[in-house]
């Protein structure tokens, strides 16, 4: 454009203005991350001035709201790990098998119709899943396991597992479909069946993508809140037994939010310390997931 004419200069200015505005919009995402980290770290700092990090990590009791408070995050971590573990026992086998089936077996029409339905599983509001876990799955489980308490980690974990199937299956399927056809054809030419080709050729080739899918699924399960808050009971419990009620990090944050803790009190700060722990957990998994995902994009 001609910068010497008035019109050209106006055009140039307008373009500059728009570019700057768009850049600021994109930059806002960094501000958001800064806000999240800033709030979590700032509020946790005042918490860790009162509670030592060693107590936080080694004390086996989490009773911040009692008269004799203990601030050991371990019971919340075991609660989170148990529900996540149960969820993965459901989501990983079902999600992987569904992905292999959709990518290698399903006829085109079946794939085009089932995939959106499967995606809907992750569109259902989590509070609805919570209702389903508490009032449908738990009574059902109580018929199989007599004496199962009304609140337990098992039913919450199972429901979260179904909920994250689409996260596992859809990214795994993308990875498998990215495996070039000629690799499969080579395997078929040797006389392998579809099953042999799927598990000896396609799955190993797509492994980093599948790993990324698993990791993102784990990260979702760890951060899931409403299902555990509704169905797992809100009492910290240091146990590995999924049939027991327990509390996850997320459920604890909800529990405190439901009460009226004064702003600035130690009880109020605990949710930020718990939140920071949760954030670090998911951050590690998210970064690992991106590393794997980037790798599988680069192979072919």
């Amino acid at each position: 454009m001609n910068l010497n004419s008035k019109k050209g200069q106006r055009r140039w200015l307008r373009e500059r203005f728009i570019t700057t505005t768009l850049f600021l919009a994109a930059f806002s995402s960094i501000v958001i991350t800064g806000g999240i980290v800033g709030v979590l770290v700032f509020e946790s700092m005042s918490f860790f001035q009162n509670v030592s990090l060693i107590d936080f990590l080694t004390d086996r009791e989490w009773t911040p709201l009692f008269l004799n408070p203990h601030y050991g995050i371990l019971p919340l971590i075991t609660g989170t790990l148990v529900t996540t573990g149960v969820a993965l026992l459901v989501a990983i086998p079902l999600g992987t098998i569904a992905a292999v089936y959709l990518s290698e077996y399903a006829p085109h029409r079946l794939r085009e119709t089932t995939k959106p339905v499967l995606e809907l599983l992750s569109a259902v509001p989590t509070v609805v899943y919570g209702y389903f876990a508490l009032l449908f799955v738990t009574p059902l489980l109580q018929k199989i396991i007599p004496g199962l308490p009304g609140f337990n980690m098992l039913s919450a974990g199972l429901v979260i597992g179904v909920m994250i199937i689409p996260y596992v299956s859809s990214l795994s399927e993308d990875a498998m479909r990215a495996v070039p056809m000629h690799i499969r054809e080579a395997s078929y030419a040797m006389g392998a069946t579809r099953l042999q080709t799927s598990f000896n050729v396609v799955v190993p080739s797509a492994l980093s993508g599948i790993a990324a899918a698993y990791i993102l699924g784990i990260s979702r399960a760890i951060g899931e809140t409403m299902v555990v808050a509704i169905a797992a009971g809100m009492q910290p419990n240091l146990t590995w037994d999924p049939t027991k009620p327990a509390e996850t990090i997320t459920a604890y944050i909800v529990q405190v939010s439901l009460g009226d803790l004064p702003h600035g009190s130690l009880g109020y700060q605990t949710i930020f310390a718990a939140g920071l722990t949760l954030f670090l957990f998911t951050l590690i998994f998210n970064i690992a997931g991106h590393v794997f995902r980037r790798r599988f994009r680069e192979i072919y």
Partner: peptide, 28 residues
Amino acid sequence: DIIEINIANLAGVPSIIYGLMALGLFVY
């Protein structure tokens, strides 16, 4: 690159963490 990685990471942050951020920042 940083902006891109950052957005991908934000997508994976549990929703309740956004709530904590809002509580500390917007509310107080």
